[in-house]
Simulated assay, not measured.
Amino acid sequence: MNGTLQKHSGLIISLLVLGMASLTSLMLVDLFTFRPRPNGHFSGNGNPALLFVFLLVPLYAVWLGLVGRASYLFFGEGLTRGEERLGIVVLLILLLLLQAFIAYGYAHLIFHSLGSTSDPEATFAGSRGMNQYTNTAYVNLITYTIGTIIAILAGYVFALLRRRN
Score class of each variant (00 low, 15 high):
residue 1 M to W: 15
residue 2 N to A: 07
residue 3 G to W: 15
residue 4 T to D: 03
residue 4 T to Y: 07
residue 6 Q to S: 06
residue 6 Q to H: 11
residue 6 Q to E: 08
residue 7 K to C: 00
residue 8 H to W: 14
residue 10 G to Q: 04
residue 12 I to E: 05
residue 13 I to E: 00
residue 14 S to A: 15
residue 16 L to K: 03
residue 16 L to Y: 03
residue 18 L to I: 13
residue 19 G to T: 02
residue 22 S to E: 09
residue 22 S to D: 12
residue 23 L to R: 05
residue 25 S to E: 02
residue 26 L to I: 08
residue 26 L to T: 09
residue 27 M to C: 04
residue 28 L to G: 04
residue 28 L to R: 12
residue 33 T to S: 13
residue 35 R to H: 04
residue 37 R to T: 06
residue 40 G to H: 12
residue 41 H to K: 15
residue 45 N to P: 01
residue 49 A to V: 05
residue 51 L to E: 05
residue 51 L to K: 11
residue 52 F to L: 12
residue 53 V to Y: 15
residue 53 V to K: 14
residue 56 L to T: 05
residue 60 Y to M: 05
residue 61 A to P: 01
residue 61 A to R: 10
residue 61 A to D: 08
residue 62 V to A: 15
residue 63 W to N: 11
residue 63 W to K: 11
residue 65 G to S: 03
residue 65 G to T: 02
residue 68 G to M: 14
residue 70 A to P: 13
residue 71 S to N: 03
residue 73 L to V: 15
residue 75 F to L: 06
residue 77 E to C: 00
residue 78 G to L: 05
residue 78 G to M: 09
residue 78 G to H: 08
residue 78 G to C: 03
residue 79 L to N: 01
residue 80 T to N: 05
residue 80 T to Q: 10
residue 81 R to P: 00
residue 82 G to D: 07
residue 83 E to L: 07
residue 84 E to C: 01
residue 84 E to Q: 10
residue 84 E to G: 00
residue 85 R to D: 04
residue 86 L to C: 04
residue 88 I to L: 10
residue 89 V to S: 01
residue 90 V to I: 15
residue 90 V to A: 08
residue 92 L to E: 07
residue 96 L to Q: 10
residue 97 L to E: 03
residue 97 L to G: 13
residue 100 A to S: 11
residue 102 I to A: 10
residue 106 Y to V: 00
residue 107 A to W: 05
residue 107 A to M: 09
residue 108 H to L: 12
residue 110 I to W: 09
residue 110 I to P: 06
residue 111 F to V: 00
residue 111 F to G: 03
residue 112 H to M: 09
residue 113 S to H: 09
residue 113 S to N: 10
residue 118 S to F: 01
residue 119 D to Y: 02
residue 123 T to F: 09
residue 124 F to K: 07
residue 125 A to V: 05
residue 130 M to C: 01
residue 130 M to A: 09
residue 131 N to G: 09
residue 132 Q to A: 12
residue 132 Q to Y: 04
residue 134 T to W: 03
residue 135 N to H: 13
residue 135 N to R: 08
residue 137 A to N: 04
residue 139 V to G: 02
residue 139 V to W: 14
residue 140 N to Y: 08
residue 140 N to E: 06
residue 143 T to G: 01
residue 144 Y to V: 02
residue 146 I to G: 07
residue 146 I to D: 03
residue 148 T to R: 08
residue 149 I to G: 12
residue 150 I to Q: 14
residue 150 I to M: 15
residue 150 I to C: 15
residue 151 A to P: 07
residue 152 I to M: 15
residue 152 I to S: 15
residue 152 I to D: 04
residue 155 G to R: 02
residue 158 F to I: 13
residue 161 L to S: 12
residue 163 R to C: 03
